[in-house]
Amino acid sequence: MKFVVLAAIASSLAPASAYVITGDSVNCRSGPGTSYAVKKSYAKGTDVTISCQTAGTTVSGNSIWDKTSDGCYVADYYVKTGTSGYVTKKCGGTSTCVAPKSNAATVDLIAKSEGFRANIYTDATGHPTVGYGHLCTKSKCAEVSYKIPLSVADGKKLLADDMKKYEKCLTAMLTSKAVLNLNQYGALVSFTFNLGCGAAQGSQMVKRLNNGENVNKVLSEELPKWVHGNGKVLPGLVTRRNNEIALAKTAGSGAALPVKC
């Protein structure tokens, strides 16, 4: 009887069985959402062991994310568990580092760089956009919860909503060797907001920062490389990169990164 009880306890504490990855090159991220840094990728057909599950970014109607034995998260939509619900225990303490909130200088830089447009328009790189540079993900910007044409007040709310995503992914992709103050952090938030988390993560700039190189030197050398759209140098991007460098070099702001998790 004692053996049976112990076996039952062990079973309840053990991770779930291995499940098959159903998508092609499925990303395993540092947190439960598409804005987190990619830690590794799984090929289709790979067996992964799930240690726990938690809620995160919704992918094709499924908001569950699976934490694998590799310590990163994959969208449950791409894992063949046989159900769209939970198959194992919920993760406890799954929150990652809390991203610092951008300072007023950063908000002003992004708002000035993007400009405000109440109605949907096509930006310089051909993407449908609205408000302060919100890149639409659905037809007619259907994902926006505010009424279009946007009011200035709602436009600022949408900007604040959008900035959180980039603050979060930027914080997740930088290591403890990247020591930034709020102005340097803000310059990178502006860059990431403009180019996207994927561009930032794959950039030489982030690699150099994660190697512990001097922040202002890295930004001064790397940011000016990101001024092209459709193969052409865009004056607006040149101005924005220069403003980001100027912000990074402005003294007087508090510490931003690294943060304690």
Rank of each mutant, 00 (worst) to 15 (best):
D47C: 00
T96S: 15
L234M: 09
E114N: 07
G56F: 01
L135D: 00
L109A: 09
A118F: 04
T125P: 00
K156V: 01
G23L: 03
S253A: 15
S84E: 03
V179M: 00
T171M: 03
T81I: 08
D76Y: 11
A18M: 06
K177H: 11
K177E: 04
K164I: 15
T68I: 06
T34R: 07
C169G: 15
S12F: 13
G196C: 07
C136I: 10
Q53R: 07
C91A: 03
D70E: 13
Y166N: 10
G126I: 15
V218H: 01
R241S: 00
K207R: 14
Y146M: 02
P100Q: 09
I245G: 02
G126Q: 10
S41N: 05
K168G: 00
S63T: 11
M205E: 03
K2M: 05
G31W: 10
D154S: 03
S102G: 04
V189A: 10
Y86C: 03
G71V: 05
M205P: 06
M1R: 13
K225V: 04
T54Q: 08
L223Q: 07
T54L: 09
A104G: 01
A16W: 14
V238K: 15
A160V: 02
C91S: 02
V130E: 02
I120G: 01
K89Q: 13
Y77V: 08
W65F: 06
K207Q: 10
N62H: 05
D70G: 02
D70L: 11
A104V: 14
S95T: 12
H127G: 01
V87C: 08
I9F: 15
T22P: 02
S25E: 10
L13H: 08
Y78E: 00
R117V: 01
T46Q: 07
S51Y: 05
G254D: 06
A18I: 04
A118H: 03
V20N: 06
G93S: 10
A256C: 06
I9P: 05
D123C: 10
V48S: 00
E143I: 11
G126R: 12
Y78P: 00
S220T: 15
G126A: 11
K101R: 14
A111D: 01
H134V: 01
A255F: 06
V20H: 04
K249D: 03
G236T: 15
A8E: 01
V20T: 15
N210I: 08
G85I: 13
M163C: 01
L135A: 05
P32L: 02
F191Q: 06
P258I: 09
P128W: 07
